[in-house]
Nucleic acid binder design. Structure first.
Length: 884
RNA sequence: GGGAGCAUAGCUCAGUUGGUUUAGAGCAUCUGCCUUACAAGCAGAGGGUCGGGGGUUCGACUCCCUCUACUCCCACCA
């Protein structure tokens, strides 16, 4: 059967994925092999695959496939995250589109809708990962809201509560008026935003002559919530106002003037309005001065009745309106443009409103300390290690974690309130009742109300590396781990984005140490953010993110994987460009065509191996071992793109451009000559090795070809073949081959510059016997040289072209005359270049201090450099003489 | 405002305790090729005073200082 010229991934990818699944190759069970474990960073259950996932999961798959071939018991645990805010927002939006408001539903009804949504959309992203070739152990797929996983979260809450680490309190939180929930500091993104500075006149109470102070504010709509005006105690400009009162404009409310050194004298007017309910700093000033808290903004960001005016207006509408009212009342001194950092909700992009509310917190100081230590001591390695600084900074300035969210989708906080407002925290309603009855024996189950809030999503994902194996472990540090946890934990490598280093990575370390007394993973490989060619972050809004599924359809999953990896280096952002994926596809095609070439050969059992083939086989064998060593080293250092590039070049240049071209059987009279068995077998074996080395990167094409290059038994797979190992090899052989290759390149360049056809055979003379004589057959075949003669001098200098490889002189006699003047100029330029070099080297060697201080081998090397340069100059000068 | 990182060819990046022939790769570019595996290819070539300035050293892309540009993280200046 004639094979198509171009490789068609659609013919192979689904076929082999089903084959792998059918034979359960991805599944892992504890055994006596060494475990190699990765837990997937669980994507949002409602998410669809984007380029960041592609990057991340390709890397994980490369590592896991490689580990599997290295003989480890490789286990990659997949799953999804319930992502409470994001998912709840999507469900709310979907219901809204159907005319249903969340407020019309009970909690149970809403959750029913949410679970239905999850049924429908929850598996999409995992199915998409299969297209990519991800070799996850699908039998272990977990969801952060699986009953057992949720139980682990509840147990953890109860554990920390009883340990005294979880407390409840009124705090100023970051309120998302769209998501209607508090969000953590980490979920607030600060962006510089254009706003205005309004200068308002507050009249001095009781002043006869209409005296006033000017206050600068960006939030005039909050003046009704002002509790005081504050000046700096040292600010002499305002000393006459001490103890006086001012009148809030429009509502004519009298508030005191207080003094606090928080105020910056030279910022604004030096006069600050204090609004404890709507600003975190003002809140703190309010605490110091025992000021009342007047909360005039409701959960939706609208002014409430306490505002007295503009009631029911949205905060931003109210701002515009009140400015107009103040202006009309003559109380607006002036307006200035101003840029300030405004907090936005990461999830809904709403402007965050600082708001006082009752929330649950987890104390972080103690657990953060140990989590910092293990990273400082390199028990956990961050790759690249520059993230250590960032990590340290965060861990040293850690705040208590606000873990409650005013949502329904998630694990409901297991706190149960008694009628008198007291509460108990227990694993189950039954235990809660029992605990409550200790307080009041007459209580019935119906007297208890459970806290409405759910827990922050990260409060469940921080247990992920533990609970995917043993969901009964979190909350019970002293319990024996089950067999799975004991075997797979700690996991090996975690591949994730630096953005969630604190959200997730740091907290997993904390949970791991708390419950397992051990780190959750040894290496954290932090990938970059995938950006477009212009360096913009890929986002739906910009529409600059390609659809990964379409990309895979167009270029093949192998091509896309390669394209992603080619532009990755740890911690650096990835500038994604489709041309890289194209390069990946081209590589698939190159592999495919190498296979087509080999497949077209016939074997003659009696044929003798040619000289050049014998050399090529020996050389390639050595080069293979060296390449494996280099690749292993790159993998050890997580330089995955470097490892790939080495392999890419090894296949393309060394295997295709050199090895195959050398051993390619001759073509005589339009007919392919057969190849000898020794060479053929060696070639198949090399190809087999290459496929194995490439397999972790490009699983599909390698599986396809591996099944075609040789007989395979049913149920065999490349993915479980042992990885090729390096053997001892001769550096010298590799070096002399590369000298020969350089000679071939020089001869080709010579042909090109003189318009000599590759078909015209040439004679080559070499001046000294120091040249790699055993490589002669290679030079002859690859450069179409009929004869290589070793001579003492080159005669007839004007009718040939000389060149040097290292210090060896070659000469090609040519029938036509060369342009002597041009040649002389060229040789002179060469001499000048080497003389310049020689000068710098001899200056170095002439420096007594250098010879004294530099290591002996460095000096030795410089001497060799000088000697070589001198030889070259001598050679060139001789050549110049003969030309003249 | 504080902290961190980066600056090397047109682009994306290597350059591993300062010395490996006066800097490497991939892509892109240019030139010549439809050579019987592959034009998604083959062969060849060009291209960088390593951001600027100063310093340490026998020797600096590499270490130090400074300036400039960019990026990221943290932070309550109303």
């Amino acid at each position: 059967m004639e094979l198509p010229v171009k490789y068609d991934p659609s013919q192979t990818e689904d076929k082999w994925y089903s084959y792998w699944l059918k034979h359960n190759f991805f599944h892992s069970e504890p055994d006596n092999r060494e475990a190699y474990t990765i837990v997937i960073p669980p994507p949002n259950v409602t998410g669809v695959l984007h380029m960041g996932h592609m990057m991340n999961n390709t890397l994980q798959d490369v590592l896991i496939r490689r580990a599997r071939m290295m003989g480890k018991n490789a286990c990659w645990v997949p799953g999804t995250d319930h992502a409470s805010i994001a998912t709840e927002a999507k469900v709310v939006a979907k219901l809204k589109a159907e005319g249903i408001e969340k407020s019309d539903l009970t909690r149970e009804e809403f959750l029913e809708h949410a679970w239905k949504w999850r049924e429908k959309h929850g598996g999409i992203i995992l199915e998409q990962l299969k297209k990519l070739g991800a070799s996850c152990d699908w039998a272990r797929t977990k969801f952060t809201m699986d009953p057992a996983m949720s139980k682990a979260v509840i147990n953890t809450f109860v554990y920390f509560y009883k340990k005294g680490y979880i407390y409840r309190g009124v705090r100023m939180v970051n309120w998302d008026p769209e998501g209607l929930t508090a969000v953590s500091d980490e979920e607030v993104v600060h962006r510089e935003t254009d706003s205005k500075f309004y200068y308002l006149r507050y009249k001095i109470s009781g002043s006869q002559n209409g005296e006033y102070v000017i206050i600068a504010t960006t939030r005039p709509e909050t003046i009704m919530a002002d509790a005081a005006v504050c000046i700096h105690p040292d600010d002499e400009r305002f000393h006459h106002l001490r103890g006086k009162k001012v009148i809030i404009p429009l509502i004519n409310k009298e508030i005191p003037i207080i003094e606090d050194s928080y105020v910056t004298m030279d910022f604004g007017t030096g006069c600050l309005k204090v609004t404890p309910a709507h600003d975190i700093n003002d809140y703190e000033i309010g605490l110091r001065h025992k000021l009342p808290v007047i909360d005039i903004i409701d959960e939706h960001g609208k002014l409430n009745a306490k505002a007295q005016i503009l009631v029911g207006e949205d905060r931003f509408v109210a701002r515009k309106k009140i400015v107009k009212m103040l202006d009309e009342a003559g109380l607006l001194e002036k307006t200035e443009d101003y840029k300030s950092q405004i907090g936005y909700s990461e999830r809904t992009n709403a402007v965050i409103e600082p708001r006082l509310s009752m929330q649950w917190f987890l104390k972080m100081d103690v657990i953060a300390k140990e989590a910092l230590r293990v990273v400082e001591d390199d028990e956990i390695k961050l790759i690249p290690d520059k993230f250590k600084n960032t990590y340290r900074h965060w861990m040293e300035n850690v705040h208590d974690w606000c873990i409650s969210r005013q949502l329904w989708w998630g694990q409901q906080i297991p706190a149960y309130y008694l009628p008198d407002g007291e509460y108990v925290v227990e694993d189950t309603p039954e235990e809660a009742l029992a605990a409550a009855q200790k307080i009041d024996p007459n209580l019935k189950a119906s007297d208890l109300t459970r806290d409405e809030d759910v827990l922050d999503t990260w409060f469940s994902s921080w247990l992920w590396p533990i609970s995917v194996f043993d969901p009964e472990k979190p909350g019970f540090p002293d319990k024996e781990p089950n067999k799975e946890l004991a075997y797979y934990y700690p996991t090996n490598d975690l591949i994730t984005a630096p953005e969630i280093l604190f959200f997730w990575v740091a907290r997993m370390i904390m949970a791991g140490q708390e419950f397992c007394h051990d780190i959750p993973f040894r290496n954290v490989y932090l990938t970059g953010i995938v950006r477009d060619k212009q360096g913009r972050k890929m986002s739906k809004q910009l529409g600059n993110s390609p659809d990964p599924i379409k990309l895979m359809e167009q270029y093949g999953a192998d091509g896309v994987r390669l394209g992603m990896l080619l532009c990755t280096s740890a911690g650096n952002d990835i500038l994604f460009d489709e041309s890289q994926v194209e390069q990946g596809r081209n590589f698939s095609n190159k592999i495919w065509n190498a296979y087509r070439l080999i497949k077209g050969w016939t074997i003659d059992d009696c044929a003798k191996q040619s000289e050049e083939a014998a050399i090529a086989v020996k050389w390639f064998d050595a080069k293979l071992s060296r390449t494996i060593e280099i690749v292993n080293d790159h993998f050890d250092k997580f330089r995955i793109n470097d490892a790939l590039m080495v392999i890419y070049k090894f296949f393309w240049d060394d295997f295709c451009a050199w090895y195959l071209e050398i051993i390619k059987p001759a073509f005589v009279d339009g007919r392919q000559m057969p190849t000898d068995k020794t060479t053929f077998d060696a070639t198949i074996s090399f190809f087999d090795s290459l496929l194995k080395i490439i397999h972790p990167f490009m699983p599909f094409i390698t599986e396809e070809l591996w099944h075609n290059i040789d007989e395979r038994k049913a149920g065999e797979t490349i993915m479980l073949q042992p990885m090729v190992k390096a053997k001892p090899y001769s550096e010298e052989l590799i070096h002399s081959f590369s000298q020969a290759a350089d000679t071939v390149v020089a001869l080709r360049a010579l042909r090109q510059s003189r318009n000599i056809s590759p078909k015209e055979a040439l004679t080559l003379l070499v001046k000294r016997a120091g040249y790699p004589a055993d490589m002669s057959p290679i030079i002859k075949k690859m450069a179409n040289i009929s004869e290589i003669g070793v001579v003492d001098t080159f005669d007839n200098a004007t009718a040939g072209q000389a060149f040097m490889i290292e210090t060896i002189e070659y000469y090609v006699p040519l029938s036509g005359m060369i342009n002597v003047a041009e040649e002389i100029a060229k040789v002179k330029a060469e001499i000048a270049r080497y003389e310049g070099f020689l000068k710098s080297v001899s200056a170095k060697l002439g420096n007594a201090k250098f010879v004294e201080h530099a290591p002996a081998q460095v000096v030795e090397l410089e001497r060799k450099k000088m000697g070589d340069a001198q030889t070259k100059i001598d050679n060139l000068k001789q050549r110049l003489d003969t030309l003249k």
